[in-house]
Nucleic acid binder design. Sequence first.
DNA 1: TTCATATTCAACCAAACGGTTGATGATCTA
DNA 2: TAGATCATCAACCGTTTGGTTGAATATGAA
Lengths: 110, 110
Amino acid sequence: MKQDLDRVFAALGDPTRRTILAMLLEDDMAVTDVAAPFQMSLAAISKHLVILSRAGLISQEKRGRVKWCKLEPLAMKDASIWMEGFGQFEAVNLDAFERFLHTELTDPEV
Amino acid sequence: MKQDLDRVFAALGDPTRRTILAMLLEDDMAVTDVAAPFQMSLAAISKHLVILSRAGLISQEKRGRVKWCKLEPLAMKDASIWMEGFGQFEAVNLDAFERFLHTELTDPEV
DNA sequence: TTCATATTCAACCAAACGGTTGATGATCTA
DNA sequence: TAGATCATCAACCGTTTGGTTGAATATGAA
């Protein structure tokens, strides 16, 4: 759906939101903890989370008074595929990325 | 550079601009020809092209009175890599991903 | 019950976005 | 030279975005 791509790309167009997604790569987080490292109000972060949620990039589940945010990386898939359609750059770089991952995952020091 | 990702993702967040990029996948085009299939004014398309240009996603060259638009798919490289870090390999930890991005940006061989 | 914590809501604000129209500056062509 | 074409500029308009603050709601803890 075209609108899905609109929402995903638009959501990724803000540095605060990309940082939030990177944070959630480590682990699920409560809204307050997501907000902690930023200089803006909790309400502002709450709005960013709504945008990420509507784009499908995160899901939120309330347990008690805490709302947990979880990364939903599958939401990026269509956008990623769309970009791959523009080809050229993929071969060398994604290859490099995969090699990197391989060494990361097999390196006993990490 | 963080702002580059801002501009690339934000530029891709509009369906008109994504359609324009897809059109340019076939061949370079003059501004008027880019505008032809759309229902909006030439001035509006001209603004969209400025946004794509500032994001580095297209380049424009004036020959005579005609300004030619050329797709620059390499501008999507970093954005694509950023996304792949989430979409395909969700188990990878953030530190590893950030180190990868850093080497990607500073290693002249890649 | 009472107080503290977690989160959102509501109203507001300035700036940016996506569009319009009309004028303008180049450049090609008859 | 005169007229047509290509593209942008300038001013304007309504909506969205990204932030604020203060009040409200819901839950947990004493």
